[in-house]
């Protein structure tokens, strides 16, 4: 029986800066972070194929810029930042294609959920996704990271560059808005 590989971040980061081991080390990074990053992206863009493409772009961007990663921040923070930026860029492009103002919410993304073969949620889950999509972008990010990923506020703070207090307030507002959405659409 093959022993299970234990991911050692410090060792992987060291290997990433060794030309002889970097490619193999990045393979470990992909293996370790692909699921977390995928779900982060998927909850932002809803569509599986779009999420898969954005995840691919995220890893390509990280790999081509690996020389710029010096290990000052955590690798996970760096990757999450890239994934968020890629997701927002994608959403903004989609808004432009659909003639939707950039400052409007992302509700349009939830319109195709009902017919999405990779969404099997019930009516309440669908309603929750619509409620989340109606939130401002940053609140949506904060809600997803906290509620679904159960990420610590300190980690979120590093990724989003916002104070812990502001994130807590943002999460609180998001919940209030989701409750209102359910009340209004009951």
């Amino acid at each position: 029986m093959a022993g299970k590989y234990i991911y050692d971040e410090a060792l992987v980061v060291e290997q990433l800066h060794d030309p002889g081991q970097a490619r193999e080390a990045f393979g470990k990074v992909i293996e370790h972070y692909s699921q977390a990053l995928y779900w982060q992206i998927r909850r932002m863009v809803f569509d599986h194929d779009d999420a898969s493409d954005i995840l691919q772009n995220t890893f390509i961007k990280a790999w081509t810029n690996i020389d710029n990663f010096r290990g000052d921040a955590k690798l996970s923070t760096w990757l999450h930042k890239i994934a968020i930026n890629e997701s927002i860029t994608f959403i903004n492009k989609k808004k432009a294609q659909n003639n939707i103002p950039l400052d409007s919410d992302d509700s349009f993304l939830a319109n195709t959920l009902e017919s999405d073969p990779w969404f099997d949620g019930d009516a309440t889950q669908l309603q929750l996704q619509r409620a989340i999509a109606s939130l401002p972008e940053k609140q949506r990010l904060v809600f997803n990271m906290r509620y679904f990923d159960e990420m610590k506020y300190e980690d979120m703070s590093e990724i989003l560059g916002t104070s812990v207090g502001a994130l807590k307030a943002s999460y609180h507002h998001a919940i209030k808005k989701i409750e209102s959405f359910f009340t209004e659409n009951d």
């Binding site: 599986h48 969404f119 949620g121 019930d122 669908l126 996704q129």
Partner: peptide, 10 residues
């Protein structure tokens, strides 16, 4: 609702 968002993957 719980934590299940209703999304799945192939």
């Amino acid at each position: 609702i719980g934590k299940d968002a209703g999304f799945k993957v192939p």
